[in-house]
Every structure is written in C-alpha cells, then in structure tokens.
C-alpha cells in the first residue's frame, strides 16, 4: 500500500507517495528525480547508492524509505552550493580520482560523512571507512589522495562549521 511521506532531501522538503518498504534509492531516483545516487548491486555491497542520513553513511538500495522519513537525507546533488563545488568534488577532479564516474557520487558522500566526523584523517582511517565503496575502475589511490587533499583544505578553512 502506498502512503504519503515527507522527506527532507538536501535541505528541501519532498512529499512522496510510495510503499514504505520501497528502497530509498528508487524513491529518490523516481520522484524528486535525484539520479546522482546510482543503482549498483542491490544488496548494499558496492556503495554506489551511498547517501547520508543524519550524518551517517546510508546504503540507499537496502534502506526502506519508511525508515528515513523526517531525517536529513543528503545526496551528491546537495554538495555543490551556489555553483561552487565542494572541496571534495574539486579534489576528486584535481586528483583524477575517477574514470567512468559511476561510483563517484557514492564515494563523495561516504567521504563527506567521514570528514564530518573527523576532518584530520590518516590514510588507514580513510581506507577503513571507505572499504564498503567499490571503484571497479581502480581509482582507489587517487580517491584516498583526493580525500586527504579535501581534508587539508577543510581544516584550513574550517568550513566544517557550516555543514551542508
């Protein structure tokens, strides 16, 4: 049975009509038409569907939409502000941390959640945190480098005081 639910996505309210068990991923892609989070493996193993829910990493493909109503959902589309790329997005481009780009939005959101918690990161902390995100093209070393670069940038500018 479909029900009407209120979602808060990237700071904006969205009223959606869906079955409560339908995955957050499909709801986001269907109704607000936010297709940045991608369809990957369907079992939470690849991380290409990663969004952030109340500052925690969330695999949207195995999360029922009914479980996240009223929570703050953040997708890759919310990273850029006023036409200005987030330091993570900028770092991914500058470090060449992507090939086909299909996993990138999940990588960015997973990394963002990590930087929220702890902006001063060691390489091992990044690797441990990002282990659930697969880049089949094999950009892992560049992604680690990009996260470190963004981390330095954010530390320097203390931009984390205004979380997006």
């Amino acid at each position: 049975m479909s029900s009407v639910m209120d979602l808060c996505v990237n700071g904006a309210a969205h009223r959606v009509s869906a079955e409560a068990e339908k995955s957050l991923l499909l709801v986001l892609r269907d109704d607000p038409a936010l297709t940045g989070a991608k369809i990957g493996c369907g079992e939470g193993e690849c991380g290409t569907c990663t969004v952030v829910v109340d500052n925690e990493v969330c695999r949207a493909c195995i999360t029922p939409v009914g479980a996240v109503t009223g929570k703050r959902i953040r997708t890759v589309e919310g990273l850029e502000e006023h036409g200005q790329l987030h330091p993570l997005q900028q770092a991914f481009l500058e470090c060449g941390a992507l090939q086909c780009g299909y996993c990138t939005s999940g990588m960015l959101r997973a990394a963002w959640a990590l930087l929220q918690r702890n902006p001063a990161l060691t390489e091992l902390e990044i690797i441990a945190h990002m282990q659930g995100n697969v880049c089949r093209c094999g950009c892992y070393p560049r992604i680690v480098r990009a996260i470190q670069q963004a981390s330095r940038h954010l530390e320097a500018s203390a931009a984390l005081e205004v979380p997006r």
Partner: peptide, 13 residues
C-alpha cells in the same frame, strides 16, 4: 568531469 562529481551526468540507467 564536473558533471560526474555533481551527479548531473545522465547515464543510461
């Protein structure tokens, strides 16, 4: 590259 890091690029899916 920009459209890939913003999620703007539309893959077939």
């Amino acid at each position: 590259g920009r459209a890939l890091v913003t999620g703007e690029h539309q893959y077939v899916t």
